[in-house]
């Protein structure tokens, strides 16, 4: 009976405390592979710089795309970098599912009295994402200034909320892609494919043809990774309903992806030994 009560009390505080603890330990161990840490950080910066260079060259030649100015698109670009930071920093372990399922190592996560999704995801904090975050903040601040968006606490709060809900879409998309690893062998390709979509996320949805517009809104909802949530700030006069709904939709999508992920993980029973 005593044990029963104990397990009921495993609430948010328990998980927050545990997460902080695992995070600190993970960072400590990251530091112990110093060369790996430095090289991957440099790699991340170079990747971002080259992405930005391509973007810049594009706008040297076209001053605007479908009525979107250079600075507006730059805003979306910075916004999308912020929105994909959480998936990179906190959900990076999703990339190892297919390997762990294949080798049978995933089974070690199945014997702990904590939420399986939490336990698996908490194990890795990917520090490379931080470089991208800083880069994103710089780009966003520059565009913010050029677009003359007021810099008041309310606007910053709106920014925070919209970045958070935008990030949920990318997290959920990657959760779903990773969860395929519980059923199929080639899920690494599914993940790479899904992650590629982040490159489309940084453009306004209006530049695509109606078919893709529909797909990117309702099927693979990457339009929510930057376009819809950021409309609040960039074009406050033409905010569609979907923008208001994006936090709710984000939470729903995340919940769905979590359920699918858990279903896959619970059906996992390891390899022979």
């Amino acid at each position: 009976m005593e044990k029963q009560n104990k397990s009921l009390k495993k609430g948010l505080r328990f998980y927050m405390h545990l997460y902080r603890m695992i995070l600190i330990q993970d960072l400590k161990s990251k530091m112990s592979y110093r060369a790996d840490f430095i090289i991957s950080t440099i790699g991340m910066i170079l990747t971002n710089l080259s992405g930005f260079a391509a973007f810049w060259i594009l706008f040297r030649n076209f001053p605007s795309i479908k009525g979107w100015s250079y600075h507006e698109i730059l805003f979306l670009y910075g916004f999308s970098l912020l929105a994909i930071t959480p998936v990179q920093c906190f959900f990076d372990n999703n990339w190892s599912i297919y390997r762990m399922v294949y080798t049978g190592d995933f089974i070690k996560y199945c014997f702990r009295p904590v939420n399986l999704f939490f336990y698996f995801i908490s194990e890795v904090f990917d520090i490379k994402g931080v470089g991208q975050f800083i880069f994103g903040v710089g780009v966003l601040a520059y565009a913010w200034n050029k677009l003359r968006i007021p810099c008041t606490p309310i606007y910053l709060f709106v920014l925070l909320m919209s970045v958070l809900s935008a990030s949920l879409f990318m997290i959920s998309l990657m959760n779903l892609a990773a969860a395929t690893g519980f059923w199929i062998m080639g899920s690494a390709y599914v993940m790479i494919f899904a992650f590629k979509f982040k490159d489309y996320a940084r453009y306004p949805i209006t530049i695509f043809n109606p078919v893709f517009r529909f797909i990117f809104t309702f099927i693979i909802p990457i339009a929510f990774v930057a376009y819809y949530p950021s409309l609040f700030l960039v074009r406050a006069d033409e905010v569609p309903l979907l923008t208001y709904l994006s936090p709710i939709l984000g939470i729903m999508f995340f919940y769905l992806s979590y359920k699918v992920w858990m279903k896959g993980a619970m059906s996992y029973s390891g390899t022979g030994s």
């Binding site: 044990k3 104990k6 397990s7 330990q25 400590k28 161990s29 990251k30 112990s32 592979y33 049978g104 190592d105 089974i107 070690k108 199945c110 014997f111 702990r112 009295p113 904590v114 939420n115 399986l116 194990e123 619970m266 390891g270 030994s273």
Partner: peptide, 22 residues
Amino acid sequence: RTQNAEDIGVVFGQRTQLWWAL
């Protein structure tokens, strides 16, 4: 499963359940 895990211990083959780098 989660509740059952509170009161059992498992060592499965050669797979370590400890954190590799810690």
